[in-house]
Design a protein around this nucleic acid. Structure first.
Lengths: 143, 143
DNA sequence: TATATAAATGATAATAATTTTCATTTACAA
DNA sequence: TTGTAAATGAAAATTATTATCATTTATATA
């Protein structure tokens, strides 16, 4: 099922958010493409039709839509990074969203999936990022 | 096999990078903990013993170590995000590191792994991030 | 339909993270 | 020992994001 502007509007209402022209514009822009857009790119597109809309409103709207899971977020390198020694061999991360604790885990192999994707898309795959986000035991208690 | 300072030094040399006291200090700091550290955190730690070292050098050193795959990078929300309509149901991303094209793929289920991790670590898992990075067909040609 | 009100907006400033520039210093090959 | 390319530090420039606050507006309800 394709995500429609109507669907987004309804969900906003359900959660008590107002339906403003600015939000409509952002929704329409995101729904109009399959591409992934950065906040700045969305701002530029929206700005053409609605020159008075502010970048801040874009950010606020994106936060809401992401919280309602109407849009999804991805990270493609760049900022917000942290580092650790690279445990030899493959490992992935489990990150506490509250305190930031990171647990490495091993023993999960994505080779097959990688081959499938490579075959299906023609991509030459260089690497991947697999992370789970959640609350660690400690932060669950102190909630 | 644990990553040692010696190992890091050798790899640097192999790739024609000089072994400076500043790089030693960064390496020693990263190798001394299992935690994941942000560039700023690494800077603070290094700064105690070597007050003259600059944050810029930390960034430069991290870039090199990451390129040589001696350390690994993770993204824990925050900046560097982009958005798309959330295709209903689960999907993950395949991102071209050159042109930024994003392909969504479905049909890969991480539920079992999630349950295993939850059992083993006590985490209450809220979500995950699975992305493959590579070169799309087009960018492979124009190389 | 008018209106009260909480929510949303835009402008601006503030903060944070990262990169660039460039003059100076330094590791190391010869 | 020395020449040279590479690395460094300081400072400024970019870029991304968030906070503040006075003004406007969507919408529930009278």
């Amino acid at each position: 099922m394709r995500l429609t502007e109507r669907k987004i509007a309804a969900t906003l209402r359900q959660h008590g958010y107002k339906l403003t022209p600015q939000r409509r514009a952002v929704m329409r822009t995101i729904a109009s493409t399959q591409d992934h857009l950065t906040p700045a790119a969305i701002y530029q597109k929206v700005h053409k039709d609605h020159p008075s809309i502010g970048l801040v409103t874009i950010y606020r709207t994106l936060d809401i839509l992401a919280k309602l899971e109407l849009i999804c977020e991805l990270h493609a390198g760049g900022s917000c990074r942290s580092y650790t020694v690279g445990a030899r061999g493959h490992h992935h991360h489990l990150i506490c969203s509250n305190c930031g604790e990171v647990i490495d885990f091993t023993g999960y192999d994505l080779t097959q999936l990688e081959q499938r994707l490579s075959r299906q898309t023609g991509f030459e795959i260089e690497g991947h990022l697999l992370e789970f986000i959640g609350l660690c035991q400690n932060c669950q208690k102190n909630d």
